[in-house]
Amino acid sequence: MRNTTTQADGVPGGEHAPVRFDTKIAVLLRDDLESWQRLNVTAFLVSGLGTVVPEVVGEPYEDADATAYLPMLRQPVLVFEGAKETLTGAHAKALSRSLATSVFTSDLFATGNDRDNRAAVRAVGRDALDLVGLAVYGPRNAVDKVIKGARMHP
């Protein structure tokens, strides 16, 4: 997937010009999660994005003392919330548009490692997943259509 950036007015600018991405990273969380669950689910959902779409990861960071830090996603992650039905609909739309999608189901709160997480998801059919969160990456307009009906996380 392509991930280009342009200045807000579409004209190339200097190094301090505003950056506008033609792609979007959105996380949609079920609105009945506890605070700790929201944070945990968000972290898990975006963690795999850079392995599948490496261009979303920026350069490593360094402070003024030359201490090196890991790179991070190079564009904002927008976090939304919605009812269970909103997540179910968004999931179906994301898959129908072939967007890069990650899911977190309620079953994953009871597991403690990647192997068991994958087995828990694999044990349930696509339409029966008890989704508590999903992340979607793709062209901005397509992602907007997927998360339509959700509201920005407070």
Rank of each mutant, 00 (worst) to 15 (best):
A94T: 01
N141F: 13
A90T: 00
D116T: 05
V121G: 06
L78H: 14
R118H: 11
L131I: 10
S106R: 03
T51W: 11
A123S: 12
P18V: 10
T101F: 04
T88C: 05
L99K: 00
A68D: 12
D22F: 11
T51Y: 13
V103E: 01
G89A: 06
A119H: 05
E59P: 10
R126G: 01
V143A: 10
P12F: 15
R118T: 08
Y137P: 02
V57Q: 09
L39Q: 14
Y137C: 03
T111F: 00
V132D: 00
D63V: 08
V53P: 03
G112T: 12
I147K: 01
L28P: 04
R151T: 15
P76V: 06
T4D: 10
R140L: 14
T4N: 11
V46E: 02
V56S: 10
G14N: 14
D31R: 13
A90V: 01
R122C: 07
E62K: 12
L78G: 07
Q75W: 05
A150Y: 00
F21T: 02
P60Y: 12
H91D: 00
M152T: 15
D144C: 13
A150R: 02
A83N: 09
R115Q: 13
S47Y: 09
V57N: 09
L33H: 08
L45W: 01
A43R: 09
Q37Y: 03
G14Y: 09
A92T: 10
R74L: 05
W36V: 09
Q7A: 15
T5H: 09
E85H: 13
R97G: 03
A123H: 07
A142Q: 12
A135P: 01
V57Y: 07
A100T: 12
V41Y: 01
A26C: 12
R74G: 14
G58V: 02
A64T: 14
V56G: 06
A66N: 12
R115V: 13
V143E: 05
T4R: 08
R115M: 07
V124G: 05
T101W: 04
A90L: 00
G138L: 06
V41H: 01
A119G: 03
T101N: 06
T51Q: 12
L87D: 06
T105H: 02
